[in-house]
Each structure stands twice: as structure tokens, then as C-alpha cells.
């Protein structure tokens, strides 16, 4: 039982970071109709910027805040300079441009910080908390709690503030929003700023868990099964799906993989199933697309990938 709880806490911690990143993708999609493949690059860059700010001697809170602000600026820049001129371009062209941004940002980080993983500065205290016999490291605990709080805070902002209301209207029907006086282009820029800022914080949290490397950008690929599962237009769905996927990966890694390996060892010459937990999100993605294309919380018929 303790082992199961251990898997649950680890799954929720990682899943909450997935959710935070996926919420950013959903937000951009809702507001501008762009499927942003560069979100993983924003995640990675946010972590590198926090790293750089820490190296300058800034305390962790300031380093993360500075990275968040810089990432928000990069998000606005990406929208205004790269995406806005492509307003009437075909969807595929826009997707290719976001892929190009991913490659460019990754190459820039490679040029500045090199290809090797870096020791990420300690942001949260060492040690672990024991709760009902389950040990949760402060890293996991803080990353999970912070991600969930940020996600909920963001959903609250979207739901209860006047700006959030304008964002929802602009996302729902941009032409109607423009007609009643909402400055829709500003709302799109704001969405990119918030999305990139969230990604930057998510990247920092992931780096505290897994270390800092260019591989952080791959998280963008995991975020896509999350948004497909949650429904491409549902922010709440992204949160729930992120947590679900984190749990699923954790249980696959901790329970399913060893069970399958035992079975295979007993009957075949295969000894390992490799990193099965990395396959699970995409298997789930295929299953969701086949059975419920609109995702768990998406509106039927509104968006089908």
C-alpha cells in the first residue's frame, strides 16, 4: 500500500507539471487557433534562464520570477513577430513555423549552454517529508503543489477576472469579441505571454526534478497527449488529463513494467520492455483519438485532430 501511495505522489507531482505546460498550449490554441509545437522549447528555455539568473547570484525566487517575465516577453515577441504576420496562412504553415521556433530555440540553448546536462541549482530544500509511511522529497512536493496552485490560480484568473472573461470571449468567437469592443490582438498577445510564462515555470520545476538538459524540450511531445486526452479547448481538461497521465506513467514505471518483464522472463528470452512509461502517453493518445476524438472534456464536434 505504501508503495502504491509512493507511486501516486510521484505521478501527481510530475503530472501537475505536465498539466501546467499543457494549459499553456490549450490557452494559445483557444485564443489564436495555433497548435504551438514550440511549447517544449519554452519549457526548456525557462529552465535555462532560471539557471542563468541563479548563476548571476540571484536568489531562487527572484531567478524564477525573472525567468517567468523573460519568457512572457519571448512569448509576446514570438506572437507579434512570427505568428501575427501569418494570420491568414494555412494551418500547416503555421504549425511548421512553430516547429521551426522549437528548433531555433533549442539550437540557441545548445550554442549558449552546450549539449551536456547541467547541475540545476538547488531551489527547494533537500530531504523528504514522511506522510502515512510515504516519503515525498521536498522537490517533488513543492513542484507538485506549486504546479497545481499555479494551474488552479490560472483557471481562477480565467474564470473570475474581467481580463479572463475577455480572453474567454476572444477565444470563443474572435469576430464577435472584436465587434463588441474587445481588443482581440492584445488578448492573443496576453495569451502567448501567459502561456510562455507558465511553460518557463514548468521548465524550472521539471529541471529541479530531472536536471537541466536540452531534453527538457521533449516535454512538449508529452503535453500533446495531455491536451488530446483533456480536450483541445478545455483548460480544466488539461489539468485533469495532466494529472491522469502523470499517474499512468508512474504506475506503468513502478508496477506494469516490472510485471510484464517478469512475465516475459518466465516465457521468453526478452528481459526488458525498456522505458514503457514513455510509450504509454502515445498509446493513450491513439486510443483517445479512436474512441473519443474530442477528449474527455472537449465539446463534441468542435475540434477533432
Amino acid at each position: 500500500m505504501t508503495y502504491i501511495l509512493q507511486l501516486v505522489t510521484a505521478g501527481l507531482a510530475v503530472g501537475s507539471v505536465y498539466a501546467l505546460i499543457a494549459i499553456g498550449i490549450v490557452l494559445i490554441y483557444k485564443c489564436s487557433g495555433v497548435v504551438n509545437f514550440a511549447q517544449g522549447a519554452f519549457v526548456m528555455m525557462g529552465a535555462y534562464l532560471t539557471f542563468a539568473a541563479s548563476r548571476l547570484g540571484l536568489p531562487p525566487v527572484l531567478a524564477v520570477t525573472l525567468a517567468l517575465v523573460l519568457m512572457a516577453g519571448i512569448g509576446v515577441l514570438a506572437e507579434r513577430v512570427v505568428l501575427r504576420p501569418m494570420l491568414k496562412a494555412p494551418v500547416v504553415a503555421v504549425m511548421m513555423v512553430t516547429l521551426g521556433m522549437l528548433i531555433m530555440i533549442r539550437a540557441s540553448c545548445l550554442a549558449v549552454w552546450g549539449p551536456d546536462p547541467l547541475a540545476f541549482p538547488r531551489i527547494f530544500p533537500d530531504g523528504a517529508l514522511e506522510l502515512f509511511g510515504v516519503f515525498i522529497t521536498y522537490n517533488y512536493l513543492t513542484a507538485g503543489v506549486l504546479s497545481i496552485l499555479l494551474s488552479l490560480g490560472f483557471l481562477g484568473f480565467y474564470r473570475f477576472t474581467a481580463v479572463g472573461l475577455m480572453q474567454r470571449c476572444a477565444a470563443d468567437n474572435p469576430r464577435a469579441a472584436l465587434a463588441i469592443g474587445i481588443h482581440t490582438s492584445n488578448q492573443v498577445s496576453l495569451a502567448w505571454a501567459m502561456s510562455a510564462g507558465l511553460a518557463g515555470v514548468g521548465g524550472t520545476l521539471l529541471a529541479t526534478l530531472n536536471g537541466l538538459s536540452l531534453g527538457l524540450a521533449d516535454i512538449g511531445l508529452i503535453a500533446f497527449p495531455v491536451i488530446v486526452l483533456g480536450g483541445l479547448t478545455s483548460l480544466g481538461g488539461a489539468l485533469v488529463a495532466g494529472l491522469l497521465l502523470g499517474l499512468l506513467q508512474s504506475f506503468t514505471d513502478g508496477l506494469l513494467s516490472p510485471m510484464i518483464e517478469d512475465l516475459l522472463r518466465a516465457h521468453t528470452r526478452i528481459y526488458s520492455v525498456g522505458a514503457l512509461q514513455q510509450v504509454v502517453p502515445y498509446a493513450l493518445l491513439v486510443a483517445v483519438l479512436l474512441l473519443r476524438p474530442q477528449g474527455i472534456f472537449g465539446r463534441k464536434g468542435s475540434e477533432r485532430l
Binding site: M166, D172, N173, A179, S302
Partner: peptide, 25 residues
């Protein structure tokens, strides 16, 4: 401020949301 002959489709907003939008704008 104006109203429209054809009211646009807004799936995610409630009646009160729409009135609040007017206040916000």
C-alpha cells in the same frame, strides 16, 4: 455601445458573463 441584429455564437459564456463583459468594456 451597440447591439447586433444577429447575436453571435458564444459557447462558453453564461448570461451573467455577457452582461459582465459589457461592464468590463
Amino acid at each position: 455601445s451597440r447591439t447586433f441584429q444577429n447575436v453571435a455564437s458564444l459557447h462558453d459564456l453564461t448570461v451573467l458573463d455577457i452582461v459582465r463583459l459589457g461592464r468590463s468594456l
